[in-house]
């Protein structure tokens, strides 16, 4: 009951459980599935354990191969393989390859972010993206390792000096999302954050044509 109450209040600007894009949604879904599965397994294991103390109800001798071969290896392997397949399907769908996508470059530094675009002037510490259309964020860093993470849109990827990592994201509705640095990067790590703004198609077109954020009503 207490858990349910808490679950109800799982929102917040940075909650992965309040997703606003397809990646984050499928992962939040995955969490629910795994949480249910894990709870079930925990209950089964603890019940088996408790039965060990109720000698009157359990059979005295169960062959090793039943416990270990079929139980530990058989059942566990089946569950794991099912989970792996599910994981591959969800993960494979989030790979930053193929399909038309807008590319945005994110550069992290102690302790600010810098975003630039292919066909437009950079926007400093604000990431601007279209709604309902995938973007590929090319993430890098100039000093130490940082992490690029917009919890409500999807997973994170590290910003590593000397490397460029790609992340595919999409926002389902217009609005502002909080972005965070996920990898510990020194004393400014806590506040190393940024804002992502998802624009409606019309605004996005205007933005790409050079309109400033202020002009579009976002400041």
């Amino acid at each position: 009951m207490a858990v349910l109450l808490v679950l109800a209040g799982c929102g917040g600007d940075v909650s992965t459980l309040d997703p606003a894009g397809p990646s984050a949604t499928s992962i939040a879904m995955m969490w629910s599935v795994m949480l249910i599965g894990a709870t079930f397994i925990t209950i089964v294991v603890l019940s088996l354990l408790a039965l060990g103390f109720r000698r009157s109800v359990v059979p005295r001798r169960i062959p090793e191969s039943l416990w270990l071969g079929y139980g530990a290896i058989g059942i566990v392997s089946v569950a794991l393989i099912a989970l792996l397949i599910y994981g591959f399907l969800v993960g494979g769908g989030q790979r930053p390859i193929g399909g038309p996508a807008t590319t945005i470059r994110a550069t992290a530094q102690q302790w600010h972010w810098h975003f630039s675009y292919e066909a437009r002037a950079p926007t400093g510490a604000v990431l601007v993206m279209p709604v309902g259309h995938p973007v590929t964020v090319e993430v890098t860093a100039t000093d130490v390792i940082h992490g690029f993470w917009i919890p409500r849109l999807g997973g994170k990827v590290d910003a590593i000096p000397g490397h460029v990592n790609r992340l595919r994201l999409q926002a389902d509705r217009p609005g502002r999302f909080v972005g965070l640095c996920a990898e510990f990067c020194g004393t400014g790590h806590r506040d190393h954050s940024f804002t992502a703004i998802a624009l409606s198609p019309a605004d996005w077109r205007a933005f790409m044509d050079g309109a400033s954020l202020e002009a579009l009503g976002h400041d």
């Binding site: 992965t16 992962i27 995955m30 894990a38 294991v45 794991l80 989970l83 997973g155 994170k156």
Partner: peptide
């Protein structure tokens, strides 16, 4: 009771997309 749950969250973290959210 503690280790079983730790093992289960470990399996969760081994699943790549979930890891991308939970990492760090």
């Amino acid at each position: 009771s503690v280790f079983v749950m730790g093992g289960l969250t470990g399996v969760m973290l081994a699943i790549v997309p979930f890891n991308w959210q939970a990492h760090d």
